[in-house]
């Protein structure tokens, strides 16, 4: 296990370094001007040049890269051009909102995926269900989100259309998760409000996850149900529920878990769209604004969080798979 973790951490460091190199190279190619973005479009060129010197942008790329890596080694991600805050401060502010949304989407996606996988295998309605889900996710995610928003917020008025909480006197607590903080800070009346705000964006994000997991799990279960040990279990007189939970699911869960890991990588792409669509104040919204302002420190900071989250989730999935199926071993 120790070696496994060590390998994972080394992998994480390698990916992050490679990412910084790519982003710095991109910055050189793209003709964006952070100094101009900072001082405004109408500022005289002399002021822009002075600002460029002050920001060290007149130095050669390798020098800037080295300085950035030295800063990074001290845990300093630099200062955001857009907000003027240390990037770490901004990340601490925006990450909980995104994590709360992603966690909710994963829970919803896994539960929905499992719920549709089982009928697909066990009943003749499986094909119809699968068709329905594929139809629901064949549209681009912004259209799905827009449609859900139109139906459940605009027409029916059952759910809020955006934001994390109704404008009120809500105080965030230690976790930054609205749902948890409502309890931790003694504001239980905010819990249903926070949950209501979470449903539409989380469900929009969850739909593609549900389809991917549902299809993978259904196909693994179909394969497992053909195995001899399932026939043996049934021949021993075990009920269908016991066969499913004790034998089939345990052996079919591996590929579905790998799919969860893959979905975490994909979910970050969709978060950019869903957060904008539902005015969700998380890393996706922060990243989009940072791009528009040529705010490289902020973009790098978000990329760091995304990469680190993905690698951590991938590691957890590997451990879980090994725990379920000891033949795989860790790593």
């Amino acid at each position: 296990m120790g070696l496994f973790l060590l390998r994972r951490i080394a992998g994480l460091a390698g990916v992050l370094v490679a990412m910084t190199i790519v982003l710095f190279a991109l910055q050189q190619i793209v003709p964006a001007d952070p100094a101009r973005a900072l001082v405004g479009p109408n500022a005289p060129n002399a002021l822009v040049e002075a600002k460029r010197t002050e920001m060290g942008l007149d130095r050669p790329l390798p020098v800037r890269y080295w300085r950035y890596m030295v800063q990074l080694s001290r845990g300093d991600l630099g200062q955001s051009i857009l907000t003027h805050n240390p990037v770490t401060t901004d990340l601490a502010r925006f990450t909980p909102a995104t994590l709360e949304l992603i966690l909710a989407a994963l829970v919803l996606g896994i539960a929905t995926g499992a719920a549709v996988a089982l009928p697909q295998v066990l009943s003749r309605w499986g094909g119809v269900l699968r068709l329905g889900l594929i139809a629901a996710t064949s549209a681009p995610i912004f259209l799905t989100g827009l449609l859900l928003s139109l139906v459940f917020w605009y027409w029916l008025g059952w759910l809020p259309g955006g934001g994390r909480v109704s404008p009120d006197d809500f105080r965030l607590g230690p976790t930054g998760f609205m749902t948890l903080d409502s309890i931790l800070t003694g504001q239980p009346r905010m819990m249903p409000d926070a949950l209501a705000h979470l449903i539409l964006p989380a469900f929009t994000l969850a739909l593609p996850i549900a389809v991917a997991i549902g299809r993978t799990l259904a196909s693994s279960l179909t394969e497992v149900y053909r195995q001899g040990y399932i026939r043996t279990a049934r021949a021993k007189g075990l009920g269908e529920a016991t066969v499913l939970t004790r034998h089939a699911l345990k052996n079919a869960a591996g590929p579905a878990l790998s799919m969860v890991s893959l979905q975490v990588a994909l979910i970050f792409n969709n978060v950019l769209i869903v957060e904008r669509l539902f005015a969700w104040p998380g890393l996706g919204s922060y990243m989009v604004q940072a791009f528009a302002a040529a705010d490289l420190p902020a973009v790098l900071g978000v990329a760091f969080v995304a990469a680190a989250t993905y690698l951590v989730v991938a590691a957890i999935v590997d451990i879980l798979r090994a725990a379920i199926d000891p033949r795989l071993g860790v790593g």
């Binding site: 928003s149 917020w153 008025g157 259309g161 955006g162 904008r276 669509l277 539902f278 005015a279 104040p281």
Partner: peptide
């Protein structure tokens, strides 16, 4: 004065129509 950050102009239009 309550100023909300709503990036989608479609959503702003619908909010205006709904009185939000």
């Amino acid at each position: 004065i309550q100023i909300l950050i709503v990036p989608s102009s479609n959503q702003q239009m619908l909010m205006l129509e709904r009185g939000e």
